[in-house]
Nucleic acid binder design. Structure first.
Length: 821
DNA sequence: GCGGATCAC
DNA sequence: TATGGTGATCCGC
């Protein structure tokens, strides 16, 4: 717990401790600051103000640092300075930061903290001038560098590294670059971070601020070590070590609070450990679990982003709060005029107008209208803005803002500013291909200087393991697979056996085997080609396998290949009973057999083994009569793909095949993968290939109840929700495959925990699961010993919900059986 | 499409 | 005395 931020540890006599302000947050140059004193002063100054009251209610105040400062008068060197005025300062130099002064702090508070603080007015032309100077330097290293803002940039130094040939050249390149910035700008210092991607590079650039640099080696273990202990947002205690503030882009005050206090995720390593929890609670998005897991793995962007055109344009002003309507209307007219002016300058017309208000008590409100036609005229804007404002009166307002969005794309570039179009062309022409990797620098200035935050990226793929990991994540982002599982997969890769490698080699020439329906594929040149009759039935052995079981189909053709190889090797008399594909290959040496079997198990567990498709019905029922045995072994699932089940179950239960066939009619591509007892069901849009939902979990014994199907996740993407209004659509199908899988594994019960995070998420989860057919069993609150088992297994508190698998299948049978016929 | 929130800079 | 402005995105409804 950093800096007494937890309200639970606050002493009643020290109320400022609970006043969480941005001013004691991570900030370079704040090491050794008496944070309590800062907090107390800020508290005393703020106490009772409307603003403070608002903050108390929101329990938040967040701003980001902008290191941008310059004073040309040498006599000011070493003196505490801040850019801005008494009401607000933009940034402060390191001298001032020693007093606790920082960006986004009101000047009057800053002056209280540091009575000698020198206020310097903002001077944008000056910043732009120096920014341009630094950019000239960056161009020498990477003509396509990404200018993050005036004071930061990302450079790809791959080529420079390569030219200089030496490994470890990043250090000297960074030094040279910073030195170059220093001389070209006449004295500006900056900091740099070098790493494999931009996210890491930014963090690295913070480490040795000011006027320093840090190079993170581009190998997986270095990255993992570095990132795993990295706090999600706050800096480390200055006494702990010399490492300065670090921050992950995209995680602000609010997100930090959720991760830290609700989910007990404090470091990036925790993010990976609690990946399934994140997956359950956040939908997939840049702010969602994929993002968190990527961060946890130290992954970030390395490409040059597309030039994004603006989506809105706005103008807003703060003034002394007033309820005077005439005054407000006149402010509104001014802002409408400003906005109209900006739109004309940019050659934009738009049809959605949004009015933003900040009340005297600092609440933010917005009201929007979409107009019939595109406009940029101040009269139109004012007319509609007035209506919107009128509806809010009477109210005391301290800020009015107007924003226009939904541009008319057709005329967007009819009259663009020269600068804009030039930038556009330059960026477009210079966009590079195949940027696999970056090293990056972050530069920052120190005292008495325009502080810089410039970054540089490079490509130097010395270590393939991390690159491989990164590739995987790109795949994840495309396929929505959880990174941590893919990681496991990656770690297992070296253990792949020779026999498997052999199969894979053969596979390469026939990678389309599993791709499409009745397409004939030659598994082996001189052998009858494998054909999926009617799209699902193997012409060689008659097994039915839905097209969506892509990997299983591959395995299946591997089987036929292996069988063929074996036949060739040992003659026509050899067994045709496929017990294990590796036994068929028969390449293991006797003395390593045991070891290899273990490995086989692990390796096989990624997919459903071929032999399970051939499991005889009596074997199946034998197993199901002996659940105790399964408990120990946690065997792979028995897939029952045939509509006419051999298990002797009632005809009314939908088989896996029923579910899959039915889903096909809904353009849904379902797939199940297993990893030991773990399983994952993914549903993809058959047309676009994008994932629309998934379920994950494990088949495990549960305290005297035999095997249960433990569901970690049922998740639908946002896209799904738009596409399919009914949760019972995709969600039901994904859930059904999981449930049927559980049934086939011998589970009687399915269970899950609707994690309690916030009221909002929790009630949503419970509602969703109830609609699917689960019932609330108990609240796991951690208050009783009996909760311990649940808490250990689920890793949290919430509502335990169970469902009888048989009942679920019965309940759902109509849906699936109906659509079959 | 609207309104609230969060985030970066 | 006094706590910014611009733009983006996401989520729920």
């Amino acid at each position: 717990m950093d800096e007494g931020e937890s309200s639970s540890t606050n002493s009643p006599s020290r109320p400022w401790e609970s006043y969480n302000t941005v001013f004691t947050n991570a900030k370079a140059g704040m090491e050794g600051v008496d944070k309590e004193k800062v907090q107390r002063i800020v508290y005393e100054m703020s106490k009772g103000s409307k603003y403070f009251q608002n903050e108390e209610r929101k329990e938040a105040l967040m701003k980001q640092e902008i290191e941008l400062m310059r004073d040309s008068n040498p006599s000011l060197k070493g003196k505490p300075m801040a850019v801005g005025g008494l009401s607000m300062i933009s940034t402060a130099n390191y001298e001032a930061r020693k007093f606790g002064v920082r960006a986004a702090m009101p000047g009057f508070i800053a002056r209280k903290l540091c009575p000698d603080l020198i206020f310097v007015p903002v001077d944008f032309p000056k910043y732009t001038h120096y920014s341009d100077l630094t950019r000239k330097v960056f161009k020498n290293y990477d003509p396509n560098f990404i200018a993050g803002s005036l004071d930061e940039a990302y450079l790809d130094i791959t080529e420079v590294c390569r030219e200089r040939g030496l490994s470890g050249g990043e250090v000297s390149i960074a030094e040279e670059l910073r030195s170059s910035v220093h001389s070209e700008t006449g004295g500006l210092t900056c900091s740099a971070g070098v790493a494999a991607n931009r996210l890491l590079a930014k963090v690295c650039s913070d480490i040795n601020k000011p006027n320093g640099q840090f190079v993170l080696q581009n190998d997986r273990s270095s990255v993992m070590t570095f990132i795993s202990s990295l706090p999600i947002r706050k800096h480390r205690d200055a006494t702990e070590n010399s490492i300065g503030p670090r921050r992950i882009g995209g995680i602000g005050k609010v997100t930090e609070h959720i991760l830290k206090d609700a989910l007990e995720i404090k470091t990036c390593g925790d993010m990976v450990l609690k990946g399934s929890l994140l997956y359950a609670l956040f939908t997939q998005s840049s702010a969602g679990s994929n993002f968190f897991l990527s961060v946890g793995l130290g992954l970030g962007k390395t490409d040059t982003p597309e030039v994004r055109s603006r989506k809105s344009i706005s103008s807003e002003r703060t003034f002394a709060a007033t309820g005077d309507e005439r005054l407000l209307y006149s402010k509104l007219a001014e802002i409408a005029e400003m906005l109209s002016h900006d739109m004309k300058k940019e050659g934009l017309t738009a049809r959605t107008l949004t009015l933003k208000l900040k009340t005297a008590s600092f609440e933010i409100r917005s009201r929007a209208v979409s107009l019939q036609r595109y406009t940029c005229s101040s009269e139109d804007i004012l007319k509609h803005a007035t209506k919107l404002l009128k509806a809010e009166l009477p109210v005391s307002i301290r800020l009015i803002g107007l924003r226009m969005s939904q541009f008319n794309e057709e005329i967007r570039h009819s009259d663009p500013s020269q600068g804009t179009i030039t930038k556009f062309i330059v960026q477009k022409d210079s966009s590079r291909q195949n940027l696999d990797d970056n090293d990056s620098f972050d530069l920052e200035a120190s005292t008495n200087c325009l502080s810089n935050d410039e970054r540089l990226s490079s490509y130097a793929s010395h270590d393939t393991s991390y690159d491989q990991l990164k590739e995987d994540v790109v795949k994840y982002e495309e396929q929505s697979v959880t990174p941590e599982q893919e990681c496991k997969k990656e770690e297992e890769r070296p253990q792949v056996l020779e026999g498997d490698a052999l199969l894979r080699k053969h596979k390469e020439s026939k990678s389309e085997t599993s791709a499409q329906n009745t397409e004939a594929v030659s598994v082996f040149p001189q052998m009858e080609p494998l054909l999926w009759v009617n799209g699902y039935k193997c012409n060689l052995c008659g097994i039915e396998l839905p097209p969506s079981f892509v990997e299983e189909r591959q395995e299946h053709s591997d089987f036929h290949l292996a069988q063929r190889l074996q036949n060739e090797e040992s003659g026509p008399s050899s067994s045709t009973t496929p017990t294990s594909k590796r036994r068929i290959l028969g390449k293991e040496k006797a003395n390593s057999k045991q070891k290899k079997q273990k490995l086989n198990q692990k390796d096989d567990s990624k997919h459903i083994p071929i032999h399970t498709f051939f499991t005889k019905s009596n074997q199946n029922s034998d197993e199901r009569r002996n659940p105790e045995e399964m408990k120990m072994a946690l065997p792979p699932p028995r897939l029952n793909l045939s509509p006419s089940s051999s298990l002797g179950e009632p005809r009314s239960l939908p088989s896996m095949s029923d579910i899959l066939t039915s889903s096909k009619a809904r353009n849904l591509d379902l797939k199940i993968q297993t990893l030991g007892p773990f399983f994952r069901v993914t549903g993809k849009n058959a047309d676009t290939g994008s994932e629309v939902g998934r379920a994950e979990g494990v088949v495990r014994p549960w305290f005297g109840r035999g095997l249960v199907l433990h569901l970690d996740t049922i998740k639908l993407t946002k896209e799904t929700m738009v596409m399919d209004k009914s949760l019972l659509g995709v969600g039901l199908y994904v859930g059904a495959v999981a449930i049927r899988h559980g049934y086939d594994c011998g589970c009687r019960t399915a269970q899950l925990l609707a994690i309690y995070d916030s009221d909002l998420y929790h009630s949503k989860l419970v509602r969703f699961y109830r609609r699917i057919g689960f019932e609330e069993v108990k609240e796991v609150s951690g208050s009783s010993i009996g909760d311990m088992a649940d808490m250990l297994v689920w890793g949290g508190v919430g509502t335990r919900m169970d469902a009888n698998i048989h009942h679920l299948l019965v309940k759902w049978s109509k849906v699936f059986l109906k659509s079959v016929s």
